[in-house]
């Protein structure tokens, strides 16, 4: 990956890409969701040394997204946060808080 690059990929390509990135020695920096008119935009940031590069998924509201928490353990916090606040259905998060990470009263406020 090139430093600062944002690579847009399809939801199905996420896991193979992330496996490759993990193999290349990157660490997970963050995962961030943004609501768009059509659905969501998820940005996964990875780092190696001082470099940082991103993968981006642009998906509709009902897209099936696989968790990467079995590849990068720390991802579970970000993914649970995104499920909790945005209502993006991310599958197979481990551990899965099932939308109860923040235990807020209002359901998916960013949706």
């Amino acid at each position: 990956m090139i430093d600062g690059e944002i690579l847009t990929i399809g939801p199905g390509d996420l896991v193979p890409h992330v496996l490759q990135i993990k193999h290349d020695g990157y660490r997970l920096i963050q995962i961030c969701a943004t609501t768009t008119k059509e659905g969501y935009e998820l940005t996964y940031s990875f780092g190696r040394g001082y470099e940082m590069a991103h993968l981006r998924l642009i998906v509709g509201p009902h897209a099936q997204i696989m968790s990467i928490s079995n590849i990068y353990e720390p991802a579970f916090l970000y993914e649970n946060e995104i499920t909790d606040l945005f209502g993006v259905p991310i599958q197979l998060i481990s551990p899965d808080y099932k939308g109860k990470l923040y235990r807020i009263e209002q359901q998916t406020p960013f949706k």
């Binding site: 920096i29 963050q30 943004t34 916090l77």
Partner: peptide, 22 residues
Amino acid sequence: KANGTKFLDRVRVRTPTFANLP
């Protein structure tokens, strides 16, 4: 993330403790 108006689309802060929790 900004959209050319005075209201931003998104501000997201990844704080150090969040990263340190795992």
